[in-house]
Measured scan of single mutants.
Amino acid sequence: NKASVVANQLIPINTALTLIMMKAEVVTPMGIPAEEIPKLVGMQVNRAVPLGTTLMPDMVKNYE
Rank of each mutant, 00 (worst) to 15 (best):
M43E: 02
V60F: 03
E64Y: 04
N46H: 12
K23H: 07
L17P: 00
L10R: 11
V27F: 06
V6F: 08
M56G: 04
T15D: 04
K39G: 05
I13S: 09
L55Y: 01
M30D: 15
M21W: 04
L40C: 06
M43Y: 09
K39N: 06
T54A: 07
R47E: 06
M21N: 04
T15A: 05
K23I: 04
G52R: 12
T15H: 07
N62M: 12
M56L: 09
T53A: 11
I13W: 11
A34C: 15
A7V: 09
P33Q: 04
A3K: 04
K2Y: 15
E25F: 13
V6S: 04
Y63R: 02
A24D: 07
P12N: 10
T18Q: 03
L55P: 01
M56A: 08
A3R: 03
M21C: 04
T54L: 05
Q44R: 13
P57L: 07
M30F: 14
L10C: 11
V26M: 13
T28A: 13
V26R: 02
P33S: 11
T28E: 15
N62W: 04
P38I: 08
S4F: 08
Q9N: 05
G52I: 01
M43F: 15
V26W: 07
M59W: 09
A7R: 01
N46K: 13
A24V: 07
A48M: 14
G42D: 04
V41I: 11
S4G: 11
P29Q: 13
P50Y: 15
N14G: 10
T28Y: 05
T28N: 12
G42N: 08
V27P: 03
Y63D: 02
V45I: 04
I32H: 01
L40H: 01
M21R: 12
T15V: 10
V5G: 04
Q9T: 11
D58L: 10
G52H: 10
P50F: 15
V5N: 01
T18I: 03
L55F: 13
L40Q: 01
V6G: 02
S4N: 02
V45A: 04
K61S: 12
L40P: 00
L55Q: 01
G52E: 06
L10Y: 11
P33T: 09
Y63H: 03
Y63Q: 03
I11D: 00
V6N: 03
M21H: 04
T18D: 02
E36K: 11
Q9L: 10
N14T: 06
P33C: 15
M56N: 10
E25C: 13
I32G: 00
I32F: 03
V26D: 15
K2Q: 15
P29Y: 14
V45K: 00
E35A: 04
L17C: 02
N1W: 14
P12I: 13
I20W: 15
M43P: 00
V45N: 04
E36N: 11
G42A: 11
L10N: 06
A16I: 03
A16H: 05
L17I: 04
T54C: 12
I13E: 12
G31K: 01
N8Q: 06
G31A: 06
T18L: 06
L19F: 10
V6T: 09
L17W: 01
S4P: 00
V41F: 14
A7D: 00
L40T: 02
Y63L: 04
E36R: 14
I11W: 01
Y63N: 03
A48R: 14
P50D: 08
A16S: 08
Y63C: 09
P50I: 10
L51A: 05
L17T: 01
T53W: 15
M43H: 08
A7Y: 01
P38E: 05
E35D: 06
L51H: 06
N62P: 04
I20C: 14
K23N: 03
K23W: 05
R47P: 02
V27S: 10
P38L: 06
G31S: 04
A24H: 09
T15M: 11
S4T: 09
D58Y: 15
E36T: 08
G52K: 07
L17H: 00
S4A: 08
L19A: 05
A7I: 05
D58P: 07
N62G: 14
N46T: 07
V49A: 03
T54S: 08
M30W: 11
L19Y: 10
I37K: 05
V60A: 01
V41P: 04
A48E: 03
Q9H: 09
L10S: 06
N46M: 15
V26S: 15
P57M: 15
M22D: 00
Y63G: 03
K39Y: 06
V45E: 00
G31W: 02
M21Y: 07
E25L: 09
L51Y: 13
V45R: 01
L55K: 01
I37D: 00
A34L: 03
T18V: 04
I11E: 00
L10K: 11
T53Y: 13
E35V: 06
G31H: 02
V49Q: 02
V41E: 05
N1C: 15
A16N: 03
V5D: 00
D58S: 12
V27I: 04
V49H: 02
N46F: 14
K61F: 10
L51G: 11
M59P: 01
T53H: 11
L10A: 11
N62L: 11
K39C: 12
D58R: 09
V5Q: 01
P29S: 08
L55W: 01
E25I: 07
A34V: 09
A24Q: 07
D58N: 10
K61V: 09
V27Y: 05
T54F: 02
K2S: 15
G42R: 14
D58W: 14
V49N: 01
I11C: 03
S4R: 02
T54H: 03
V5F: 01
N14F: 13
V41C: 10
P33K: 10
A48W: 12
A16W: 10
G31M: 06
E64H: 13
S4I: 02
L17E: 00
K39L: 06
V6K: 07
K23P: 01
V41Q: 13
T18Y: 06
K2C: 15
N46V: 11
K2H: 15
M30I: 09
I20Q: 14
V27G: 05
V41W: 14
I37C: 05
K39R: 11
P57Q: 09
K2P: 15
M22K: 00
I13D: 10
V49P: 01
A3W: 03
N8D: 10
P33W: 09
K61H: 07
P38T: 13
P29A: 05
M21K: 05
E35S: 09
I32K: 01
V6Q: 13
E35R: 03
A24R: 09
I32A: 02
E35M: 05
L19K: 02
P29C: 13
G42S: 14
M56T: 11
V41S: 08
N14I: 08
L10V: 14
D58I: 09
M22Y: 01
N14Y: 05
